[in-house]
Design a protein around this nucleic acid. Structure first.
Length: 844
RNA sequence: GCGGGCGUGGUGGAAUUGGUAGACACGCCGGCCUUAGGAGCCGGUGGGCGAAAGCCCUUGGGGGUUCGAGUCCCUUCGCCCGCACCA
């Protein structure tokens, strides 16, 4: 049949061609509709169907959003759209983690108040998110530096204080000399400040801490109840670091009333303990050394350890050093007097800060004993020399235990010690309490005051928020910049009305972000942090999405908050995030993007040139979203071509000037089917409609419970390619159905293009349409390609009826020419038939 | 050292429970259309042999289980990530 249609591509001068794909026109047009109609806003009103909370980690607003933001919000948006189209009410909010050091450092450098630079950044982020067409419920937007928000951060602090879960104590803390602030354990990486890279020092300061350790076991156990990536759970388990063992008391030789506890995972080796070691920070070290022969040496050693950079201390390969204190303790299992040493290979932060040293069966103790010529004793038999850390029978220990397998001896020795109070079974955790004090300005004020008469007094809840004052000098001077704001610091005691001074430390920003997901549920509540009823609508979060860099800190803190608030009666669930997805990084030329490398891809210019749909769809198409992916400009062009082709085909098919009955398919025209499909499909029409149903099935499965956006997009590409290939052979109805399906399926990834194409074809709004459902009958075919193997090797393919029995399939395969050729008169030993798939002939 | 993950064409990546390896896309080659094209469309593209039919090889290396292995098991090499003197 002659094609008398005009080829639109022959007249594609910009501005004149109605069939030119123009994302710069399409995208803002639909964004305006969504903004005007508040399409993505949801209420907390009762809802009959399922409600879903799809949450992407809130951004830290600094400068402009980068390509990583585009990726994570694109992933979140695809999931949110998919759930909405399946009839769920979806909460997809947005906020800003707006307190923090970078804004303050920027202020120190430029003099711009952090409040102003942060506000500018938030405005830039908001503008970009809108330009990206992300389906956010803007009515719930929040920023953690807003007094209306941090008022409730302070309330939570007071709740934790009331419960004894927040406390103040003088502690050896990590001090960053460059940022002039205390760091959490978690912010120290290889002995260096996570942020600025400076060597971290140790200081003794009065600090606020949250009692995370009280939740160690529950934080560990409840990991089994949530659907998180296994590697994230593993990282949390390692961080919590549970060890089973015993606490054993070693008494002073000079004073039997004084005892020193050690934690050991190997009480079976107690008989091999030949010395005792304390960490330099152990509070008894200097007292024990006083008056002894090594007093001066010990003093010097402790002093040096105190000032040594942490990175130096923590190098495991470094030679062991230490000094004897000149005193002994008694080994509780055999009464032997063994010398106490101080050595920096023992850490104050783990266990009791003191250890029993068993050089025969511990590598570190062995290395130390070698250096100082201390006795080394074998108490576990085993192959090879010492140190030996494997299992075996006890030797040289005690008549009751010698010969016993060490694991059994371990249990018995604990029981034996426990009988008269020399020791007990114990569990030790690596997890430390969370140090939340920061000697910085740009953070949430800690709502307590210090009164000369009443001491530490919490600010009453009705006086919250304690508002962060404006100051001029943000530079850290070893105390919080707030301390210089005398008008603010000087206050009256809420208890007695006398003079009092405010706490000048601020909170770690991780505190702000440990509960924001709760506030989204009820963001404008002035009476309380939230209405429990509002939380019941949404919490826990059904799908949390964010970067792997938060695998430990943020996710652990948010879990701790949830458990603590649940215990205080404020929440009725134990875990905040039922499911977690961590997206991979976008690299370029195999490396992380950075200004210094000059390999940064900025979303701004990208969106300007190709439209955001191309950028979004490409980011999802590039590979599995949980993996790192390398950016390619050529790959981006490919996705742009695909979206353009889909849109043009749709515009063309929708064009009323087109002859409806062109093409070689079955007679067109409306026959009652909703999409104008002919009642009886045949030929190319049937092929294309089948392909559309195949795509529905494929995309649905790739989205449902998986995050296989890349293969989902590939399926829509296949469908679109078939539309293009069959454009001259199918009826208008079949073509429109296939294109409408393609647009509908690609909507979660390229919402503007999909919306526009769908609207051109149907006049309807795709986001108001239910997600398409594949017709089972369209997924079945009358015949299939039977794979014929001989000895497991592919030899032929033949068409077989779908209804064929295994015997019939076997007969078909055996009749296939190339199968016969390869059997070649040999004896058939066995025939394996996989119905619907293949036949494998085994010959002798 | 401990824990987790990954090795597939020239490239990014596909391959529900073991069942046609290389979907889709990039790149490359050839063609069409065009005054032109950095627009659009069509065809080809893992390697080797062959005119073709077809045959052989191929998922980091080696071995095993199986009618059949990218997928399961053992072993080995390489890379990435987390923790790391954790007693």
């Amino acid at each position: 049949m002659a094609d008398h249609r005009q080829d639109p591509h022959r007249q594609n001068l910009p501005g004149q061609d109605p069939h030119r794909y123009d994302p710069q026109e399409i995208e803002p047009r639909w964004q305006a509709v969504w903004a005007k109609e508040k399409t993505w806003e949801v209420t907390n009103d009762p809802f009959d169907g399922k409600s879903s909370y799809i949450l992407v980690m809130l951004p830290y607003p600094s400068g402009e959003p980068h390509i990583g933001h585009l990726k994570v919000y694109t992933v979140g948006d695809a999931i949110a759209h998919f759930h909405r189209r399946r009839g769920e009410r979806v909460l997809n909010p947005m906020g800003y983690d707006a307190f923090g050091l970078p804004a303050e450092n920027h202020a120190i450098a430029t003099g711009v108040h952090p409040r102003d630079s942060t506000a500018a950044s938030i405005a830039a982020f908001r503008r970009q998110f809108r330009r990206w067409g992300v389906s956010i419920d803007w009515s719930r937007e929040l920023a953690t530096n807003d007094p209306a928000y941090y008022r409730w951060t302070q309330w939570i602090f007071l709740e934790l204080l009331r419960a004894g879960l927040a406390y103040k104590k003088e502690a050896a803390v990590n001090w960053c000399p460059v940022d002039a602030t205390v760091l959490a354990n978690e912010q120290v990486v290889n002995g260096r400040c996570e942020r600025c890279g400076a060597e971290v020092e140790t200081r003794q300061l009065d600090q606020w801490l949250f009692r995370t350790t009280a939740y160690a076991q529950r934080l560990l156990d409840d990991l089994d109840t949530i659907d998180w990536p296994e590697h994230v759970k593993t990282m949390q388990r390692n961080w919590i670091g549970r060890s089973e063992g015993a606490l054993v008391t070693f008494r002073s030789e000079d004073d039997p009333d004084v005892g020193y506890e050690v934690f050991t995972t190997r009480p079976d080796t107690l008989f091999g303990a030949t010395f005792f070691v304390m960490a330099p920070e152990h509070p008894d070290v200097l007292r024990l050394a006083a008056g002894g022969p090594h007093e001066a040496e010990v003093r010097e050693y402790v002093e040096r350890a105190h000032h040594a950079p942490n990175s130096e201390r923590s190098a495991a390969e470094r030679p062991k050093t230490g000094v004897p204190l000149g005193r002994n303790v008694i080994n509780p299992v055999n009464g032997e007097a063994i010398p106490i040493w101080v050595a920096d290979y023992v850490l104050i932060s783990y266990g009791t800060g003191a250890i029993m040293a068993v050089p025969g069966h511990d590598e570190r103790d062995h290395a130390f004993a070698e250096v100082y010529g201390l006795p080394i004793r074998r108490v576990i038999d085993g192959p090879g020399g010492l140190p030996y850390s494997g299992d075996g029978p006890l030797v040289n220990s005690h008549p009751d235990f010698d010969g016993l397998p060490n694991r059994e001896a371990l249990t018995r020795i604990i029981a034996w010690l426990a009988r008269d109070g020399r020791g007990e079974r114990s569990i030790n955790y690596r997890l430390r309490d969370w140090l939340v004090s920061r000697q910085r300005y740009w953070g949430c004020p800690i709502p307590v005051v210090y009164c000369e008469d009443c001491g530490l007094v919490p600010v009453p809840v009705d006086q919250l928020p304690v508002v962060l004052p404006d100051i001029e000098d943000y530079a850290p001077h070893g105390r919080s910049p707030l301390a210089a704001a005398e008008d603010w610091v000087a206050t009256t005691c809420p208890a007695c009305g006398g003079p009092a001074r405010r706490e000048t430390d601020t909170m770690d920003t991780f505190v702000d972000s440990s509960w924001y997901f709760l506030r989204y549920c009820d963001p404008h509540n002035d009476e309380a942090a939230w209405d429990p009823e509002a939380l019941r609508r949404w919490m826990p979060v059904d799908q949390y999405i964010g970067g792997i860099e938060h695998a430990i800190l943020h996710l652990m803190y948010a879990r701790f908050f949830t458990k603590a608030l649940a215990d205080l009666g404020h929440l009725d669930f134990q875990e905040p995030f039922s499911a977690l997805f961590t997206q991979g990084m976008i690299t370029r030329d195999g490396a992380k993007m950075s200004k210094s490398r000059g390999n940064v891809v900025s979303p701004g210019p990208l969106v300007e040139r190709y439209g955001v749909d191309t950028a979004r769809a490409y980011i999802l198409f590039i590979g599995p979203p949980d993996q790192d992916a390398d950016w390619s400009d050529e790959g981006l062009e490919g996705v742009h071509r695909f979206l353009g082709r889909l849109w043009r085909l749709s515009a063309e098919a929708a064009d009323p000037s087109r002859d409806e009955d062109s093409g070689g398919g079955a007679p067109g025209g409306d026959t009652g089917a909703r999409d104008g499909l002919p009642a009886e499909l045949a030929g190319a029409d049937l092929e294309l409609v089948r392909k559309a149903h195949w795509a529905i099935d494929k995309v649905t499965h790739d989205m449902d419970g998986r995050f296989a956006f890349n293969t989902a997009i590939a399926a829509v590409m296949e469908l679109t390619n078939d539309c293009s290939r069959l454009r001259d052979s199918v009826s208008g109805g079949a073509m429109r159905f296939a294109l409408e399906t393609a647009a509908s399926l690609v909507f979660p990834f390229a919402p503007h293009t999909a919306t526009d194409a769908f609207h051109l074809l149907t006049g309807r709004r795709v986001w108001e349409e239910p997600w398409p459902v594949a017709d089972e009958r369209m997924l079945e075919t009358d015949t299939f390609e039977l794979v014929c193997q001989v000895m497991g090797k592919l030899r032929d393919r033949v068409q077989a009826p779908s209804s064929a029995t295994p015997d019939e399939l076997e007969a078909l395969a055996l009749a296939a020419p190339n199968v016969r050729h390869h059997i070649d008169g040999r004896e058939i030993a066995k025939v394996v038939v996989v119905p619907g798939k293949l036949v494998n002939v085994v010959v002798r």
